[in-house]
Design a protein around this nucleic acid. Structure first.
Lengths: 335, 335
DNA sequence: CTGAAAGCGCTTACAG
DNA sequence: CTGAAAGCGCTTACAG
């Protein structure tokens, strides 16, 4: 690897001049046009590339953003990651990502890892149990944005879809279509965004004077296996024989649900209407195609980066730091 | 951030001793048990975390692996990335990933980026046009593994599925099931793994004395839009009216294909048998479910990391450095 | 058994 | 307009 010193030596000038030119501070230090050109040409010729470790050590800035998601192999998160990385490139930032698998221990570990790597800012999909760590980042004034979920009452910038609104949208639609007996299949996680989805389900029923029966909610554990989930959903739907509609609160639950529905051999939407939170290729292709509440992934990712870049001082601060993105009801054939 | 110096000062010992203890070299330098314990306790108490930039600058090792994939938002690659990251954790390595979008220019850029970041090793899904850059890495003796594809005649470690075998497997099965007139939908990319798939298609036909008609191959451009692809596939299948089977050479082409087939309202597998290279959730759920050639993602990722870690000197070198993973025929209802 | 010193490659205040 | 020097936090030969 060729260094600033090498260029300086080759040109018989001081390393400082080379550094100044290469970091674009030549003008304000009034270095001669001639020297500037000579240095730039030589650097290109020798194929100079700055050693980021050295820059990082010296400046305290790594030009790296740390991204923590739940699971990078999940389509929702990998799409977010992809967009964030694309957007970050415009600002010459790199992205280092980690997955938590929704495990607090692992979440803390990867956060520590990113901190060790001196990332300049964080975009985090937090797990339950990371509250203290997140608050510490705030205390140390680290640029930070929460994504997809947040903690109640914590004053941190965040972007997420309006979960309440999303479920409300879907429920209103089901009800408009004539369903009253609607089941809700969700995951047993104590995270705000899941609570919001459930709350919207209950509230919308109440708003329409439909009595809420708690047996109409199925809560699966987060780590349930595919087989077990399919079994439980099948039993749930079979037991609630008079069900007219079912709402799946996440896309992977929806996919499990489709497997169950296939086993039950139900006629959709005639026997049972189906709607799912969060879109997926499967839902478009399934017969009948499935109505969903779509999260604008691109917009979420872009907004997260926008909030972060503002904190990093590259753009003006945004007026709102806690942003709810409007979900979209995509009507297909299952409702 | 608290540094080695801070610990040294707090304990009134020299920074060298602290460093020696914290990097586990205390024993060989025969530092007293008492001091070792004192230092370890203090470091924990003060919450010491090494500055990776400094370590990296000093040692030339960043404990980071650079991963370049085609597109992180694609399920195949994000699953690979996830497994690689998990495995890398065991060796205390981090992963920085980038997407090329199959664009050579971008591929070179992200490679440069990773090099600037002083990554210790590379796992790369190369694009066409990155040959020189890859060869340079080899010349500089950088730990390197190619993944999912490789360049003919280049002496570099790689892992990929046996593409030829995969298509052969599928074709043999279609033929066994009585199809002779089989179409092949592929992407117009000059990459070895795609060539292999096409070659296997032609060879298997020949082997069974089925005459190969070049109109039975549809080559879509890599950057074709979803709508355009669906249209072209629809026309292709309609024009080849006597088609008994169709082989999609990648999973996204298969998904486009399903949309076409739905438009055409064909009876699968009675009118047309369908098989696809590379699995996807959609194929399991589609009615009828789609027979596929599955790539063992986990095994590919694990092997890639194994090859890399060996080069990084943490494990013994493997006997074979160019590894083909056996694909699996998953028989479902579409054939 | 322990410490002082050099140096990784860079940036930046300071001096001239 | 340009250069010499210090220092970011760490590791490691060297000295004692």
């Amino acid at each position: 690897m060729i260094s600033i010193k090498d260029i300086a030596k080759a040109l018989s000038v001081s390393p400082s001049s080379v550094s100044l030119v290469l970091t674009g501070k030549a003008k304000e230090r009034r270095i001669s046009e001639a020297l500037i050109e000579k240095i730039i040409a030589k650097a290109a010729e020798m194929g100079y590339q700055p050693n980021r470790a050295a820059v990082s050590l010296r400046t305290g800035k790594s030009k790296t953003i740390g991204l923590i998601v739940e699971n990078i192999s999940n389509h929702f998160f990998s799409s977010l990651a992809h967009t964030i990385q694309e957007e970050a490139r415009h600002f010459h930032y790199n992205v280092v990502y980690c997955s938590t698998e929704n495990d607090a221990q692992k979440g803390k570990e990867v956060l520590q890892l990113l901190t060790n790597h001196q990332v300049d800012g964080y975009i985090i999909t937090p797990t339950l149990g990371m509250e203290t760590e997140i608050e510490n980042l705030v205390k140390w004034k680290k640029p930070l944005v929460l994504m997809d979920r947040c903690f109640p009452g914590m004053d941190v910038p965040y972007v997420m879809v309006d979960n309440y609104k999303g479920v409300q949208l879907g429920m209103e639609y089901l009800i408009k279509k004539g369903s009253c007996k609607i089941g809700f299949v969700t995951v047993d996680l104590d995270l705000l965004h899941m609570k919001e989805r459930e709350k919207a389900y209950i509230d919308t029923l109440k708003k329409h004077d439909i009595k809420f029966i708690k047996e109409k909610i199925l809560r699966l554990t987060y780590d349930v296996s595919k087989e077990e989930a399919v079994k439980q959903i099948t039993v749930f739907i079979k037991n609630a024989k008079d069900l007219e509609g079912v709402f799946f609160s996440t896309n992977y639950l929806g996919i499990y649900g489709l497997l169950s529905l296939r086993e039950l051999n139900l006629n959709i939407p005639a026997d049972l209407k189906v709607i799912c939170f969060d879109d997926h290729d499967v839902f478009e292709l399934f017969q009948p195609s499935i109505t969903v509440i779509q999260q604008p992934i691109h917009e979420i990712a872009q907004t997260a980066l926008k909030l972060l870049v503002a904190q990093l001082g590259h753009t003006k601060p945004l007026r709102d730091k806690q942003i709810l993105i409007a979900p979209k009801l995509i009507i297909r054939s299952s409702t």
